Computed example of a mutant assay.
Amino acid sequence: MEIGVPKETKDREYRVGLSPSSVRVLTEQGHSVFIETHAGVGSGFSDQEYLHSGGKIVPTAKEAWSRELVVKVKEPLPGEYGYLQKEQLLFTYLHLAADRQLTETLMESGVCAIAYETVELPDRRLPLLTPMSIIAGRLSVQFGARYLERQQGGRGVLLGGVPGVKPGHVVILGGGIVGTEAARMAVGMGARVQILDINVDRLAYLETLFGSRVELLYSESLQIEAAIPDADLLIGAVLVPGRRAPILVPRHLVETMRPGSVIIDVAVDQGGCVETMRPTSHTNPTYIEAGVVHYGVPNMPGAVPWTATQALNNSTLPYVVKLANNGVKALAFDAALSKGLNVKNYQLLHPDVQRDFPDLVP
């Protein structure tokens, strides 16, 4: 099969869909991989490395897109819509619930779109979302600590505090992968940490990880209202697979936070769980609203592309191989991969996305 790897076009998105080592695996199985020139440079991979791995370098995005299977990292942007082809396989992150225009465009194009974030194992784990969730969770505290600095518009709070001065207070909404990794980093820095989640079993599991170092609370409106005004750093880590994130923090709660506090909403690529949050970019990552610093970059792992590309490829490569070897038939015998199918034959097929766009369902 011919496989295309275009260069990512999202603002400062330096990850790449396939690493040279992944290209080697595919070419050794007889597939042809066409990589847009300089697609891997941001992740530390030169065109020469791809050539050495058996790949073929093409000079334009169009030539990379003109293949049976296209492997990317982020969703197609409007400038790429014209490259979509009928019955082409597209394998990437899509997050359609937060993007009606992209959803309609994919449907109109006739492309077969499979989303990393909805590939789901029988035990409900999301194997292709997990590596980026780990990275985003860890980065959320790293970035939060930076933007709490006074020079960045923050309160001037050191999360770990110092002897004689209390540490910063980190509130994390959601105890999944993102929330757990955020807590791991915040605890390591010495912050006071609270996690709120609606799954009591998950809270019990988190107690085995953190013991008394993290305060674990059942997430309901009164608890959220009590925790947020005192938060120096609020991290939104809410995930409803395939669907738009629920708004857990309305504007009036944001207005109760101290000036210079920071909100990092990792759920922004699914619409965000904070009412005042809107998507930003790596070029302009923050804005201030109600006196609070808001960080809403939807592709946070793009800040560490050398790590993120390899972590992502470790998980996506087995599925890419299945698609390359079998085409769309791979969906028939791989139940996890079939859960990733969002759009095919001009129809929106994923049930969770359908619930967000009921008018697009026949």
Rank of each mutant, 00 (worst) to 15 (best):
L94K: 12
V266S: 07
G42K: 03
K62Q: 15
E149S: 12
H350E: 11
F45C: 06
I228D: 11
V343F: 05
N313F: 00
G54F: 10
E117A: 01
E149I: 03
M107Q: 13
Q152H: 13
T27D: 10
A303N: 03
E207P: 01
T256I: 01
N325R: 10
G168I: 09
Y319M: 10
T105V: 15
G161V: 12
L196Y: 02
A191L: 05
G82V: 12
D230R: 14
G42H: 00
E289I: 15
H31P: 01
G79V: 11
L106K: 09
N313R: 01
A204D: 12
I198L: 14
Y93W: 14
E13I: 01
Q29I: 00
T27R: 10
L128M: 09
L217A: 03
Q48G: 07
V353P: 03
P122G: 06
L94F: 13
L253V: 01
N314K: 14
S53N: 05
L18W: 01
E275V: 06
P362F: 08
V187E: 05
N342F: 02
L77D: 11
M300C: 12
S21L: 14
V274S: 07
L323F: 00
P305C: 03
G164E: 09
A186P: 11
K62Y: 13
S22E: 06
I134A: 11
L128T: 06
E275L: 06
L323G: 02
D269V: 05
V71C: 11
F210K: 02
R146F: 11
V266W: 09
Q29G: 08
